[in-house]
Amino acid sequence: MPRPTRQSPERGAARLRILEAARDVIRAKGYAATSVDEICVRAGVTKGAFFHHFASKEALGVAAAEFWGRSTGALFASAPYHAPEDPLDRVFAYLAFRRALIGGALWEWTCLAGTMAEEVHATHPAIADACGAAIFGHAATLEADIAAAMAAGGINAPDAPSLARHTQAVLQGAFVMAKAGGGEAAAREAIDHLTRYVALIFGRET
């Protein structure tokens, strides 16, 4: 994860440690099962410090989703899949990069935003909105490459924004399948099928 700058919303060691603790514990246990006390212990801060930075656990949930969007955004912005000259090659490189991220403890490679959105969409709409901004915001970063690849190939459908969103739907589904017992194999299988689907759209052999 990128280190915060002096001007970042995460400035301050205690606040950053709380956000990092929330990111990891909530991914591993879920929002409801994660307590403020547990986050404080994991972050090495007092409860007073927690409530100095966050008015409530829900406020932390919103901030954690926003932190996730910013930090993963920086990760993907600097990832090697942007290197190929051909936009379709960049799309396939993105899918390969997502596949390569799978490995280790389940919580380490699944999505905080997806995890929280599934759990709190009806009970904590502010958190769900922040999760949605992270997920849809990441999907939007793929649109330019998909649109350029479609233009180069004379392809008119599906439109680039919807295909970008579909990639995220498959990835989030892959995480659910992994958590439901399929593990790493289920997640990789889902991405492999997505890769073949994209190849079919563009007439590219895989």
Rank of each mutant, 00 (worst) to 15 (best):
Thr206Phe: 10
Trp107Pro: 00
Ala113Asn: 06
His82Thr: 14
His121Pro: 09
Ala113Gly: 07
Gln7Asp: 15
Glu10Pro: 07
Gln7Tyr: 12
Glu119Lys: 10
Phe175Cys: 01
Ala152Asn: 14
Ala126Pro: 10
Val41Thr: 14
Ala79Lys: 05
Ala139Val: 06
Arg165Cys: 09
His193Trp: 09
Ala64Gly: 05
Asp89Trp: 04
Phe51Trp: 13
Ala160Ser: 01
Thr141Asp: 10
Ala59Glu: 13
Leu200Asp: 10
Leu142Asn: 03
Val25Arg: 11
Ala164Leu: 03
Thr46Tyr: 03
Ala43Tyr: 06
Ala185Asp: 14
Leu112Thr: 01
Ala79Gly: 08
Phe50Pro: 02
Ala117Gln: 15
Ile155Ala: 02
Asp192Met: 07
Leu194Phe: 12
Glu119His: 06
Ala83Met: 10
Gln168Leu: 14
Val25Tyr: 03
Asp129His: 08
Thr123Leu: 11
Gly181Asn: 05
Gly182Phe: 02
Ala134Glu: 06
Phe67Tyr: 15
Ala43Lys: 12
Ala130Glu: 08
Arg17Tyr: 00
Ala83Glu: 13
Ala79Pro: 06
Leu171Ala: 11
Pro4Cys: 05
Gly30Glu: 07
Gly183Asp: 05
Leu200Ile: 05
Ala126Met: 12
Ala130Thr: 03
Pro4Ile: 02
Ile155Tyr: 01
Asn156Ile: 08
Tyr31Ala: 05
Gly173His: 00
Asn156Pro: 00
Thr5Ser: 14
Arg15Pro: 03
Asn156Leu: 14
Val176Tyr: 01
Arg6Asp: 11
Gly203Lys: 02
Leu88Val: 00
Val41Asn: 12
Glu85Tyr: 04
Ile135Lys: 00
Ala199Leu: 03
Cys111Trp: 05
Gly153Leu: 00
